[in-house]
Each structure stands twice: as structure tokens, then as C-alpha cells.
Simulated scan of single mutants.
Amino acid sequence: MANSDINIENDPPAPRKHGFPRRLTILLVLGVVLAGGTGFYVYFWLTHPIGSGPASPKVAVENYQEVWSERPVVLLGFGDSITAGFGASPGKSFFQRLLKNPEDEFQDLKEITLTRVLPNIEGINIALSGSTSLEMVDVLLPKIETYPEDTFGIVIASIGGNDVIHMYGRTPPREGAMYGATIEDAQPWIENFDTRLTHILDEISTHFPGGYHIFLMNIYDPTDGIGDVVNAGLPSWSDARAVHGAYNDVIEATCKKRDDTTLVDIYQEFMGHGIHSTQFWRSFYHSEDPGYWYYDNLEDPNDRGYDSIRRLMLNRITDVIPGKL
């Protein structure tokens, strides 16, 4: 018994099986989950791959094989930085590409320009980056010259976007700089925009006694319709979608009631190419091209975005201008 007692007392304690490995495993799993979650967030919320190649939509090139008219035509650019081409590489704004292909033009639109079908077209772009609809009345309208009766006008316009987004929450909201406004506060300004937009279009028409047509863009949404402006790096704005939507409603209604104005729907075309373009679970996800179409400042297009607007314009112009000429 004594020996037995001594043996029992001197036996080493039983090892604690798997204790350290279990903790290590848990830490490793947590690390993997954290790293994966971080990578997921960075890629799907913070990373914006632009992609490459032609943007959408496709253009019916058969409509650009024969001359539409030998008549003198003016292509007039009117509006804000989108029409001015802010952020585009040299020669790659949509306005420039309507008239002349860049050297590295995509194969599907080589030699597809308005110059090809309207050999006597002249481009004049008076658009001013940063301008609001109020400033367009005071600054841009007086710059439009009156053209001879043998000249037809094709007017390309982007109006109203800066009214909505300025001054990015840095100042209290006001008319022409509504960022942060409630829809109730903005309602009188929206009504004024309705009246002002009609005045702008009416005034443009007086400068083309030989005929004209206006192609008016609506306002796109870099948040892809979600309205999470904080994720776009801007201050919170709970009524952003409501105010933005009200302005687009005015633009669409104005186009519908005017025979001389056609809506160019960049809002819908750019949907899914904003800050959520990589999020494959969204209904707007473009699996064939999830590219980001906005410039570094968020409010203007990049080269691929300008390519898309150029294509939209070519299609809308094809719908209208050959018949009018």
C-alpha cells in the first residue's frame, strides 16, 4: 500500500488535452472572419473598378452611313459641367465625341459621328462647370447668338444637377444650393425650377428661327438610387432622394409637354454604375459590365460615363433629327 501510495503521489498530472490548440483555432477563425469581412467591405463598398471597353447602350450604326442633310447645323452645348466635359480625358467628353472620334475610338463606333451625317455642322459649347439653373439664366442665355434662318440647331443641355447637390452641406440649404433641405423646405424652389426651366428652353428657341430641337438630360444618382450619401463621402441628407426625384419629375414632365424637347435618360442608364456597382446582390447589378462611371469628384462622369452619354445622345438624335431635316 505504501508503494502504491508513493506511486500515485509521484505520478505526473494528466495533460490538459487540446486547450491551447482550441484557443488558437478560435483566434485563427476569428482572424479569418475579420479579414474576410474587412476585405468584403473594402471591395463591395469602398472599391470602384472602372472597367474597360465600350459602355452601353449600343448604337444602330446603320443610321450613320448616309448623309442626313447638307444644311448648316449648329450643335449647341448648354448647361453645367456634364455638358462642359469636366473630368474627361482630352477629346473624350461626350460633346467632343459627338463631332469627332478620338484616335483610340472603340471599334463599334469608329467614324460614327454627327459630322459624318451632317457635314456642315458646327459645334459651339457654352456650358459652364458648376453653374446652377439660376446662373444659366443670368450668364449662359445671354451668350447664345441668333442664327440665320438656313441654320438648324441641335441643342444638348444638362440643367439642374448643381441646384440639388450644392453646396454639399457646407452651407444652410437655399434655392440653387439645396443640399440638406427637407422636401417641404425645397418645394417652393422646385416649383421655381419648373418655371425657370421652361423659361430657359423658351429663350433658347428664340435663337433658332430656322428650326431646332433640344435634348435635355435628367439628373443621375451616384448612389444608384439608394440615397446613402454618407457612403459617398457626403454629409447625411435624409430627403436627398425626394428632392432629387422631384427635380427629375420636373425635367421629365417638361419634356413630355414640349414637342421641341426630348428627354435623355442618363438617370436610368447610369443606375448600377455608381458607388454600389460591384454589389452583385442588388437588382441593378450589371454582370456584363459592373464598371464605375463617375469621376473622382463623384458628380461628373469619367471617360466611360461620357462614352455612355455620347451613345445615348446618338440614339436620341437619330430618333428625331433626320425627320426634322
Rank of each mutant, 00 (worst) to 15 (best):
M1D: 13
S4D: 14
I6A: 15
N7P: 02
E9W: 14
P13F: 14
A14T: 01
R16T: 00
K17Y: 10
F20P: 01
R23T: 00
L24V: 05
L24K: 09
L24N: 01
G36E: 03
G36K: 03
G37L: 12
T38K: 02
T38E: 06
T38D: 02
F40C: 07
V42W: 05
Y43E: 00
P49W: 00
P49R: 12
G53A: 14
G53T: 00
P54G: 06
A55V: 02
S56L: 11
P57V: 07
A60D: 15
V61I: 11
E62F: 11
V67L: 01
S69C: 08
E70V: 01
R71H: 03
V74H: 13
L76H: 00
G79S: 04
S81E: 13
I82V: 15
T83D: 00
A84N: 05
F86I: 07
G87I: 11
A88F: 08
A88D: 10
S93I: 08
F94E: 06
L98D: 03
N101C: 04
P102A: 02
E105I: 15
L109V: 14
L109Y: 06
I112K: 12
L114V: 10
L114P: 06
L114G: 08
E122V: 09
N125G: 10
L134Y: 15
L134V: 02
M136R: 04
V139Y: 09
I144E: 05
E149R: 15
G153V: 07
A157G: 06
G160A: 10
G161R: 00
D163H: 09
I165S: 07
H166Y: 11
M167K: 07
Y168G: 08
G169S: 13
P173A: 06
R174T: 11
M178D: 08
G180Y: 00
T182F: 04
I183Y: 02
A186E: 03
W189F: 01
I190T: 09
I190S: 12
I190K: 11
R196L: 06
T198H: 09
T206Y: 13
T206A: 09
H207M: 12
F208D: 01
P209V: 07
G210C: 11
G210A: 14
G211C: 10
Y212L: 00
F215S: 09
N218V: 02
N218K: 11
N218G: 02
P222F: 11
V229Y: 11
G233F: 11
S236N: 13
W237P: 05
A240I: 01
A242F: 00
V243L: 04
V243Q: 01
A246K: 00
I251Q: 07
I251S: 09
T254D: 02
K256Q: 09
K257V: 06
K257T: 14
V264T: 12
Q268N: 12
E269N: 15
E269F: 10
H273L: 08
G274S: 04
H276D: 12
Q279L: 13
F284E: 09
F284C: 05
S287C: 05
D289P: 03
G291Y: 04
Y294S: 03
Y295E: 06
L298G: 02
L298E: 04
P301K: 10
N302A: 08
R304S: 02
R304M: 14
Y306D: 03
D307H: 10
R310I: 05
L312T: 13
L314T: 11
V320M: 10
I321N: 03
I321T: 13
